[in-house]
């Protein structure tokens, strides 16, 4: 009888035939992936119905390593692609896993509109403050004064605060953590996936090779520890007051967790009200929305 080799609990969620992955030593993305797989393990959900959609970039590669129905799409379009999956089959639990450049840079328009519609998606944004896959260019999230390959004299553009953008656009769940808040990320992802509505979990992660090196922030462990030490948990903090400044304090926590009908809830309720029996209901209607 063959004795099965003991396996790491994460392996069941990974395409082990694609290892080793492409991420740099000290990169924070792997930590977020581990938290995500922990959330899947603890979440007691039907994994067949969980889809992962990524755009382009370092974090865009996550979809390629996750052993679920997974889609590696185009730059910035992960959110509308995920919208298509969700609306095409409302039983799917769709997670967008991508980077800051993908989600709020090139994909910013899709992000705010999906939030406005309260599309039932979970968005995991890995924020490393720069475009890493292409060599560390300045991003929509780069703090003022931080150095990047296309802001060699330091950045002078105002950055987006992702939780503020999400909340202002209509998201029903918004949290932010640093990559070392492993259990808290896991819990937030669990909550976000269970939440019907547009949920956003931002994770501040070290980019050792580019952002870290260019700004002389030390090695991966140092940066990881530094972000953690700089963080202060303030649940329900007003998203207007949690901007990130260069090497400044990082306000983390769960900022938004509220109830609102999703796009499909609103569609079913409204069209049913207006059209009555002529309306062909679409997808399973949740009990609390009947």
């Amino acid at each position: 009888m063959n004795k099965e080799k003991p396996r790491h609990p994460v392996e069941q969620f990974l395409r082990m035939d694609r290892m080793p992955h492409i991420w740099c030593p000290g990169c924070g993305i792997g930590t977020v992936v581990t938290s995500f797989t922990e959330a899947l393990r603890k979440g007691e959900m039907d994994l067949d119905k969980v889809c992962v959609v990524s755009g382009i970039g370092c974090t865009g590669r996550v979809a390629g390593y996750i052993k679920l129905d997974s889609f590696h799409t185009t730059h910035g379009r992960a959110v509308p692609f995920a919208t298509g999956l969700k609306l095409g089959n409302p039983e799917l639990n769709v997670v967008v896993f991508s980077g800051d450049g993908d989600i709020v840079g090139i994909g910013g328009n899709h992000f705010i509109h999906a939030a406005r519609r309260n599309m039932d998606l979970t968005i995991i944004v890995v924020n490393n403050f720069n475009y890493a896959m292409t060599g560390g260019q300045v991003a929509a999230t780069t703090p003022i004064e931080a150095n990047a390959s296309t802001s060699p004299y330091g950045n002078f553009e105002y950055p987006f605060s992702i939780p503020y953008l999400a909340e202002a656009s209509g998201a029903t769940y918004v949290a932010r953590w640093t990559a070392l808040h492993i259990r808290r990320i896991t819990k937030s992802i669990q909550e976000a996936m269970a939440k019907p509505g547009f949920s956003v979990v931002e994770v501040i992660t070290p980019c050792v090779t580019l952002y870290g090196r260019r700004n002389r922030l030390g090695d991966g462990l140092n940066i990881l520890k530094y972000y953690y030490d700089q963080s202060e948990i303030q649940h329900n903090a007003d998203p207007r007051n949690i901007n990130i400044s260069y090497q400044g304090k990082l306000i983390v926590g769960k900022f938004v967790d509220k109830e609102k009908p999703t796009f499909l809830d609103a569609m079913n309720q409204h069209l049913n009200k207006v059209l009555g029996d002529d309306y062909q209901k679409y997808g399973k209607i949740r009990e609390d929305q009947q």
Binding site: F81, L85, K86, G88, L92, H110, L271, Y282
Partner: peptide, 28 residues
């Protein structure tokens, strides 16, 4: 709405093509 399906007006044509591909892989 009278036939059973979804209509969504997207934010632009970039998202439009993406949403179609997603819906098609969901079986529509």
């Amino acid at each position: 709405p009278r036939v059973g399906g979804v209509f969504i007006q997207m934010e632009d044509e970039l998202g439009t093509m993406a949403v179609l591909i997603g819906a098609s892989w969901a079986g529509k």
